[in-house]
Amino acid sequence: MNVLVCVKRVPATGGRVTLTPDARAIDTSLLGFTTSPHEECAVEEAARLVEAGGGTSTVLTLGPEAAIEQLRDAMAVGIERAVLLETDGTEWGPAATAAAIADAVRARESADGEPFGLLLFGNEAADSADYQVGVRVAVALDRPCVTGVKRLDVGAGAVRAWRERDGAWDVYEMPLPAVVTVREGINLPRYPSVPGRLRARRKDVERAPARRVPVADAVLTRLRLPAQAEHRVEILGTGPEAVPPVVEVLRQLGLVGR
């Protein structure tokens, strides 16, 4: 089965973010970039499916030329082919992104002469968290879709997708070809090996301009940081001498007895 996995390049934030002067983006001058966490797991799942069942694996991203870095990260853990749908670096909304991806999938499948059995997405991107690109691509291609998946069992011509609801699994079955959006936890992504990284650096990346169709997406006016409540921390100590005040805190909260 041929598997396509779609990823998004996002800033590797960790601490407090700062904004660009026009407040329309995160200031990334001091930040690295990474792949959204759910999508790292989607990449791992694609690599495992093809290792176990044969076929080809392809990674696709819509973004600036610099997003080749994320495509190479995916190839370093075993994805074979990479496609960049190149933008000018401006942010695309979810409907525009999905339309361009659906287009590229159609073009690729017609060139390959067979459909991808599975299109894998992250459930939502770390930055914009639109929760819809995978579903929009599925609807555009008229394929079944399950979102938020944390376990995938591929059988002959069909797939079982497991997702959590209220402390139990809902198990869905759908025919292939299909679309799945995955959540972190579906697997533990491997670390790329050094030979894997070297191989990925030498591989070709297919590039095509992303085709933008007019669609209605929300249009960003500005970003802002939420107001922070005034807050003071009380230091209870630096070592074992802090045990009595910690126990006193637990007592005040009714968590231990007298």
Binding site: T13, A129, A216, A218, T221, R222, L223, R224, L225, P226
Partner: peptide, 24 residues
């Protein structure tokens, strides 16, 4: 257009945006 505020980055950042009602 409708005016909205939405969360990004799990709520560590807010986005003010407009959206066409068609509906939305």
């Amino acid at each position: 257009p409708l005016q909205l505020t939405r969360q990004r980055w799990g709520g560590t950042l807010l986005e003010d945006a407009t959206i066409e009602a068609g509906p939305a």
